[in-house]
Amino acid sequence: MTELTFYTNPMSRGRIVRWMLEEIGEPYRTEIVPFGAPMKSPEYRAVNPMGKVPSIRHGETVVTECAAICVYLADAFPDAGLAPPANKRGSYYRWLFFAAGPLEAATSNRALGFEVPADRRGMIGYGSFEDVMDTLEYAVSRTPFVAGDRFTAADVYVGSQIGWGLHMESIERRPAFETYLARVTDRPAAARARSLDNAAMQAMQKA
C-alpha cells in the first residue's frame, strides 16, 4: 500500500485535512510540524516551499493547500464516496472553490479589519463581504449538502470554513450556517478528527 503522510499542526488549517483523512478511512502517518523554525526549515520547505501546513505526501505525490488536498484525497480514494460522479460535479467544484477563494479572502480581510471601499469592489474577487455571506447562505440552504443530497469532500471544506468563521466571529451567525454546520459535523469521522487534534495539541503544550 502506498504510504500516506500528513504534515500538520493541530493549531492550524491542518484540522480540515485531518477531518478529510478520517472520512476516507485509510491509514496515514502524522508528522507534527511546530511553528517557527521547524516549519520554515529547508527539510520541510522541500515538502511545501511556503513553509506552511498542512501538506500530504502520497507515495511520490505531494499536495498542499487544503482545498486541493480534499479534492485529491476524494479522487485518490474513490471507495470513500466523497466526490460526486464526474458528470455531476458542478456544485461540488463551485462551492468548494468559492469557499477557498471569495469566502477565505473576505473573512480573512474582515478579521484583519480591512473593508473594501464601495467604489473598489469591482477590483477584488469577492466584491463585498455582504455578497459573500448572502452567497454562502444560498450555498448551504438549497440542498442538505453543498453538492446535493449526500455528503462530499466539499462539505468538509465548506463546513470547516464556517466552523472556524463562527468561532472567530469572522462569519455572521446566521441560522442557516449553524444548521448546516451541525449537520455536517455530526459525523464519526469529524469527532475522531477533533479528538486526535485536541490530543496532539495537549501533547505539544506539555512538551
Rank of each mutant, 00 (worst) to 15 (best):
G159I: 05
T8K: 04
A203W: 02
A68P: 08
G163L: 04
V62W: 09
R194P: 01
H167I: 06
E137H: 00
V156K: 08
F177M: 14
A80D: 03
L103D: 06
D197Q: 10
G25C: 13
T8A: 09
A154T: 02
A182I: 05
E60T: 15
E172D: 14
P85Q: 08
R174S: 03
A182D: 13
M201P: 00
G90Q: 08
Y180L: 06
P38T: 12
A106H: 01
Y44V: 14
P54S: 01
G25D: 09
D75E: 14
E43F: 14
V158W: 02
G81W: 11
M204P: 00
V116W: 11
M133I: 13
D134Q: 12
R110D: 03
I32W: 08
S195G: 09
G159M: 07
A67T: 12
R13K: 05
D79S: 15
S170Q: 10
P102A: 14
D131G: 08
T64E: 05
A106I: 02
Y126H: 10
G125S: 12
A189L: 04
V140F: 05
H58I: 03
T61D: 11
L4W: 08
F77A: 03
Y7M: 02
M168Q: 14
T61H: 12
A154L: 07
E43V: 15
M201W: 09
V71K: 04
S55P: 08
Y92Q: 02
H167C: 03
R174M: 04
V158M: 02
G163A: 09
Q205S: 11
S108N: 13
V158L: 04
L136R: 05
D79I: 08
E3I: 10
M133D: 06
T185S: 10
A182F: 04
E26T: 12
D134W: 01
N109M: 15
H167L: 14
P27S: 06
N198H: 14
D197Y: 02
I124T: 03
G81Q: 11
E104H: 07
M168Y: 13
A199I: 03
G165R: 03
V53I: 13
R29A: 15
I124E: 06
L112Y: 13
V47T: 15
R142L: 15
P38K: 10
S108H: 09
T179V: 14
A193E: 04
L112W: 11
S170Y: 07
M1W: 09
Y180A: 07
M204C: 01
G59L: 09
Y44T: 11
L136E: 02
E178Q: 08
V17R: 00
N87P: 01
A105F: 10
R192V: 01
A80S: 12
P38A: 13
G163H: 11
P144V: 08
D149R: 10
D134R: 15
A189Q: 03
T64Q: 07
R15Q: 09
G127L: 02
R194E: 14
R120I: 01
T61R: 15
L82A: 07
V33H: 02
N9A: 12
D149F: 04
R45W: 08
P34I: 06
S128K: 01
P85V: 04
R187W: 00
R183P: 00
